[in-house]
């Protein structure tokens, strides 16, 4: 029904193309891990520990003889899943709250946005540590924490964009047609704030990957034997001088994933934000 009208510039911005390439790489590898990995990522062969990279173990093995490529691939999938679920949950609640604030205005808007400000001021890691202390560390807690910190971000973006859309004549026309605030929010406001929300979502995806890695590093994310870039890093830390490659590879993966989504988000903003749109002849 509603269509996202994005006018593609004749030349796509460089950051968009690089971002899309990196994201495609990470997502592709994560998807591939569903059907195929070179080895079982959890199979320990103590005999083969600290194997160097060769034809069998492409990037070598770790201190327990597990294949690093397989672990990185499954970890990518875990990371994507956590980020996706967390951003979707946080985004949906945040956008809903932002739309509500914008539609109702007055003290409701003030209340929602002040609470969002408080949420903004709350350090995400601290919140995750607090939740883990209460419920015990698990992936679900990590997802919940990351989702929670996303709520105020999306609420702000949604409300700011929605407030602009509310001043447009077609919204007044919808009111004249006899629609109420909620129908207008659903039919007109939501489709018209989709672009900035999607841009924000992409950038938040990068933030969520980073947050998941940090939580896993602290042992508050994915629990063994499920691999995670963050935990691979923390485990490699003690072996830093003996086997530096164990720390380098997961670190590189985090950089690629975060950079990819950040660039993609920036690029999307460049082509959808009219204020940044350069004049084209």
């Amino acid at each position: 029904m509603a269509r996202l009208v994005v006018r593609w510039p004749a030349r796509l911005p460089v950051n968009l193309m690089i971002g899309a390439l990196l994201v495609a790489l990470v997502v592709g590898v994560a998807a591939l891990s569903l059907i195929w990995t070179p080895h079982d990522h959890a199979a320990m062969t103590i005999r083969n520990r600290f194997q160097p990279a060769d034809g069998v173990y492409w990037l070598g093995t770790d201190q327990l003889g597990r294949d690093i490529v397989s672990q990185l691939m499954v970890a990518a999938r875990n990371s994507m899943t956590v980020a996706l679920v967390a951003v979707l949950i946080g985004g949906s609640i945040g956008v809903a709250l932002g739309l509500l604030a914008s539609a109702l205005g007055g003290w409701v808007e003030d209340l929602i946005m002040r609470v969002a400000d408080i949420g903004f001021a709350f350090p995400a890691l601290l919140f995750a540590i607090m939740l883990s202390a209460v419920f015990g560390p698990s992936l679900t807690i990590a997802v919940a924490a990351i989702a929670f910190i996303n709520i105020p971000v999306f609420a702000r973006v949604a409300r700011a964009s929605a407030n602009q859309v509310w001043t447009r004549d077609f919204v007044a026309a919808a009111r004249a047609a006899g629609h109420g605030r909620f129908a207008i929010s659903r039919d007109h406001i939501l489709p018209n704030i989709a672009a900035p929300v999607i841009v924000q979502g992409t950038i938040e995806f990068a933030v969520a990957i980073l947050a998941e890695a940090a939580l896993s590093y602290l042992g508050l994310g994915a629990q063994p034997p499920s691999p995670s870039w963050g935990r691979m890093l923390s485990e490699a830390q003690t072996l830093m001088f003996m086997a530096p490659h164990l720390a380098i590879y997961p670190g590189l993966c985090i950089v690629i994933a975060v950079l990819g989504f950040s660039l993609l988000g920036d690029g999307l903003r460049d082509i959808t934000d009219p204020r940044l749109k350069r004049r084209r002849a």
Binding site: V5, F170, H188
Partner: peptide, 25 residues
Amino acid sequence: FQDPYGSLDPRRRVGWSIAEPLRAT
């Protein structure tokens, strides 16, 4: 309204916009 560019939702088909008052009432 005055502005023919602003008074129609850019993301909706024209037929949808025209029928809006019918649906709403």
